[in-house]
Design a protein around this nucleic acid. Structure first.
Lengths: 111, 111
DNA sequence: CAAATAGTTAACCATAAGGTTAACTATTAA
DNA sequence: TTAATAGTTAACCTTATGGTTAACTATTTG
């Protein structure tokens, strides 16, 4: 066996793979927002936004709470942390590889 | 406008959304491997693995170099770093939210 | 209570994703 | 120089994804 496949990570990375959904998260980073407010900057239909919010919620990246006839969305930390933790395993690659790239570039410019 | 949509990030997160591809990266984390070696632990067909490798390569997550009739795959740092940098913007969420979750749990257990 | 507002669900469509087997290219070995 | 090995490409199938419009539920507000 090679890896313990995590359905949750599938959902989180899958959710992050769409630019509209990343833009929604970026909006919510500045605070809770109603579904209408979330949808406002986009040209896509409201049902499409609802679908995106469902994908984000299924991945655990956001939560929704009802308040009267509105629903407010907020970013949820844990799912993001799980994804970040997974990537953390590869940090040494960008430390090591990008360091040696820098070295290489330095050698080229100051011989 | 809400965000600068990055096709590259679409590809990177899309690539990471599949457990087979994450497992391939996990394998390659311990060093360069031939396509055959990469495929060995999986039950899926070789053409399917080739497709996964193409997805990873298109996302910039790996590169392949030919050596005789073999091809060796290695992890590429930059794409991973780009994804990690994107997530970095949300670090405060898991610092803040998970801290207050901890506080809450502490309050519950020791009053 | 009727009408407007906020959001979701249903039904549908086009395309992308992940898998298969069979056929192909290119190197190495007998 | 034929045969085996390493990997990719082609053709095909099934299901998932992202979008639409129309219809629905549930809360305000006039």
């Amino acid at each position: 066996m090679v890896n313990s496949p995590s359905i949750q990570l599938d959902l989180v990375f899958g959710a992050l793979a769409d630019p509209t959904r990343r833009a929604i998260l970026a909006q919510l980073a500045s605070g809770e927002r109603s579904v209408g407010d979330v949808a406002r900057p986009f040209t896509t239909s409201l049902p499409a936004i609802t679908k995106h919010l469902n994908v984000l919620e299924d991945a655990g990246l956001i939560s929704r709470r009802a308040s009267g006839r509105q629903k407010f969305c907020r970013v949820e930390a844990k799912a993001l942390k799980d994804a970040s933790d997974w990537m953390e395993r590869y940090r040494r690659f960008w430390n090591d590889q990008l360091d040696s790239l820098e070295e290489l570039l330095a050698q080229e410019t100051e011989p």
